[in-house]
Each structure stands twice: as C-alpha cells, then as structure tokens.
Design a protein around this nucleic acid. Structure first.
Length: 272
DNA sequence: CAAGATTCCTGGTGGC
DNA sequence: TGCCACCAGGAATCTT
C-alpha cells in the first residue's frame, strides 16, 4: 500500500523512464470507473502535449504537461509499468503511448486509484489537493506545528498522524513505525502530547520516511516500482505486522489492536 | 463540529 | 479440491 516513500519511489522511476520520451502520443483508456470516474475525452486533451516532469504532492503523482496536469493516486493497489504491445495484463485501465515507442500501463486491481486532468497553473487548487496538510519532509512540518495543531483534539495520535490534513504521506505502516521510534503509544490522545514528544515524533516521522525512500519503499502485498522491482524497507519494519513477535529493542511482545479501523502495532514496554 | 463507522474494490488466505 | 468468510487499507461519505 503506497505511502509517501513508495509514491516518491514511483515518481523517480517514472521520471527516469520518461526523460527520453517527451511527447505523449496517445492515451488508451480501458476502463474509467475508478474511485473517481474518468472519461476517455478527459484524457484525450493530453494527446500531443509535451511532458515536462513528474512531481509528488502527498501521495499524489503529478504528471506535468504543457497545458494540463495529470493527477494520479495509486490508492491501495495502483502501479505503473512498462508494457509493450503483447504485455497487457488484467486490470490495466490505462495505457499511455509516448514518443520513442515507450508505453506505460496503469494497473489497479481494486480500482481505489484516481486519475484526473486539470489545467496547468492552478492544479494545487484542485479539490483533491487543496486541503492537504504540510509535506513531512519540508519546513512547514515542524514540532511546533504538531504541538499546536494537536492541542484541542481528543483523537488517538495514530489516527491524527494518518489524517492528511495534519501531515501528508503517512499511512498505516509508517504511522506505527514513527510512533514506535518516538516512544509514544498510538492510542495516546493527541491533546496529551508533550512538547518534547512532539519534537521526537517530528524527528521520527521524517527519519522513517527518509530511510524508507532510501530503501526504495516497502514492498508489502501490492506495491511495485515503475521498473517492476520492489523496495526492501519491509525488512526494517520494527513493529508493523509483527503482532506477538519480540520487540527488536526490548524483547517484549508486540501488541496489536484495530484503531480507526486499521490494524495498529506497538511495543507496550518501549512506548508510553 | 468531532469522532467513529461504513463504503468502495479484488485478491489472497485460512477454515472446513 | 471447492466454498466461503474475512482481511488488507486510502480517502470519501455516512452516522452518531
């Protein structure tokens, strides 16, 4: 399930693939009934346009063209891959044919992904992007931001971390991992977080995301990179999906509980 | 208004 | 082997 490090990895892979294929020649929509429906004619406006680059905002991938931006969310199971003629697969919903013969496929079995075309220039005002919180790896995400923004909330800290209005890019895996590294229980009420803990949490969110990007993301279940390979950060996960196994720090048993509808993991001895 | 629950979807898994 | 219930979770939408 792609979170910030996985999306970042995909973006870098796409950038590499596309830099020698600057023009989008043809779009082929196989089915548009994704999480947010899209019609073939919405995508047709991209045909003939030069590609300018790939960016990431939160967990969204932004393909920049001269006049438009293609906004893409991978949802749970979305992936991009090279797919020459004859290499079609089940659940390929879109093919992008580029100059130079390169052909990209967007594949998404569960169709939780999203594709949207908006005019270039005010893409950040698109409804899906405009309410997003700060990027965790940039300056506006700070210990002060965490502390101030969390004061009046009674929600569990892990649920708060996964709320994209508070900070973007942190999903179910890295929320548990960051809280473990910060030494704070996921069930802790947001308003009870101290300044010192906010500082530690800020540090651990950044740290775990940066390390995961360095590893090419975590390959758990569905994630794959644009080049078809996988990341290997899953080998370094300390608590996620490790219920009842020994804590790598203290040897105690890893606890698990459903929180905000999502499986959550922590060490009751290391996290207060 | 906040917080929690439900919804979308398919593939993989475990029980029988 | 088949069948079925259940689970995975990002984000929108609903209910409380």
């Amino acid at each position: 399930m792609p979170e910030l490090p996985e999306v970042e990895t995909v973006c870098r892979g796409l950038e590499n693939l596309l830099k020698r294929s600057p023009r989008l020649v043809e779009v082929q929509l196989e089915r548009g009934d994704l999480r947010q429906p899209i019609r073939a004619r919405d995508l047709k406006v991209l045909e003939g346009q030069n590609w300018l680059g790939v960016r990431r905002r939160a967990k969204y991938i932004l393909f920049d063209f001269e006049k438009h931006v293609l906004i893409n969310h991978l949802g749970m199971t979305g992936s991009w891959r090279l797919a020459a003629k004859g290499q079609e697969e089940k659940h390929d919903h879109l093919y992008l044919n580029w100059s130079g013969g390169l052909r990209l496929a967007f594949n998404d079995p569960r169709r939780f992904g999203m594709l949207q075309v908006v005019p270039r220039g005010n893409e950040m005002l698109a409804p899906v992007l405009k309410a997003l919180g700060p990027e965790p790896l940039l300056k506006d995400f700070s210990p002060e931001w965490i502390f101030e923004k969390s004061r009046k909330r009674q929600t569990a800290l892990k649920v708060w971390l996964m709320d994209q209005r508070n900070v973007v890019g942190v999903g179910n895996i890295y929320a548990s991992e960051a809280l473990f590294r910060a030494g704070v229980k996921p069930t802790r009420k947001t308003a009870k977080l101290t300044r010192e803990e906010a500082k530690r949490l800020h540090q651990s969110v950044r740290e775990v995301l940066l390390e995961a990007i360095d590893s090419g993301g975590s390959t758990i279940r569905d994630f794959r990179q644009a080049d078809g390979g996988g990341g290997y950060f899953q080998q370094r996960l300390l608590v996620y999906d490790r219920a009842d196994q020994p804590c790598r720090t203290c040897g105690g048993k890893i606890s698990s509980q459903v929180l905000g509808g999502r499986s959550t993991y922590w060490c009751a001895r290391c996290q207060k």
